[in-house]
Design a protein around this nucleic acid. Structure first.
Lengths: 144, 144
DNA sequence: TTATATGCAAAAGCTTTGCATGGGT
DNA sequence: ACCCATGCAAAGCTTTTGCATATAA
């Protein structure tokens, strides 16, 4: 049985965190495990904190600190929503997806498109820049 | 002499605002004229307010209200930055551009790519959605 | 004259930070 | 032992809102 995406991400996270000289505390571990399980698409810090409220660990401050840290290490992607709330999702190397926001319902639909990713690489070449991250955000409504 | 882009936008803005039953006050007029002159690429509300401080009109509240209003009418585009600040630029119909953020310097480079815009239309079709707005955000550094 | 616009100040959020305590290695 | 992590509460920010006044049409 091949290793699941979550497991590889979890392993990568543990590796990078210890490489950075960081120690595994209860709150950060809880956030990371939550992300590994259900962090595939855009969770807000508040949502994460709420989901963690069952356990004894995971103050809102630690959630923010953990997300900051993971973002700096390239372990999560961050999207800043129009509602002034930042949302995060795990960053799977070589497995990018993008987002369609339904403005009528608020629903978010992730999608992939290799052609799009390829074209962006070409654009980066043309601009003579090295792109370390990118987002494609579509907004609209269903139908047609 | 052909009408400049700013003038067409200014005309369109006046038209849509009055169609919406809104009245032309000093503060909003000042913001709109500023945008027409130098609102091609990503200004923050604070920057706009500062540029307006010379005149007697343009409190920060009115700047926010004006931008909100223009955004609802589709007259400006809005991008939410990673620093928690929303930035606006005039929305030229049929003249989309996107943004490269240099993470080292903070500089923003706008770019256009018709192939990209076309591909996004195709993706919208595939997803069976009607896209009313979209952003492509590149981040990275110069070189290579 | 009536509905909208404006400015000020207060309020509302989200996010960050200081500090004392607890925990990993 | 030493350094990092955590929680709480306070502070910092951007943005929104209430309200009285001024102004466009």
């Amino acid at each position: 049985m091949t290793e699941s995406g979550s497991d590889t991400w979890l392993a990568l996270a543990g590796q990078r965190l210890s490489s950075a000289g960081l120690k595994a505390g209860a709150a950060r571990t809880a956030v990371i495990e939550l992300l590994a399980n259900e962090g595939r698409c855009l969770l807000s810090p508040q949502e994460i904190a709420t989901k963690l409220q069952g356990g004894s660990s995971g103050s809102i401050a630690s959630v923010y600190r953990t997300l900051d840290c993971l973002h700096e290490l390239g372990l999560v992607r961050r999207l800043d929503g129009q509602d002034g709330v930042a949302r995060y999702e795990i960053n799977h190397p070589g497995h990018v997806h993008h987002h369609f926001f339904n403005e009528a319902t608020g629903a978010v639909t992730p999608f992939e498109d290799q052609e799009l990713d390829q074209l962006i690489r070409e654009i980066a070449q043309r601009l003579e820049v090295r792109v370390t991250s990118y987002d494609v955000i579509l907004r609209g409504v269903n139908g047609k």
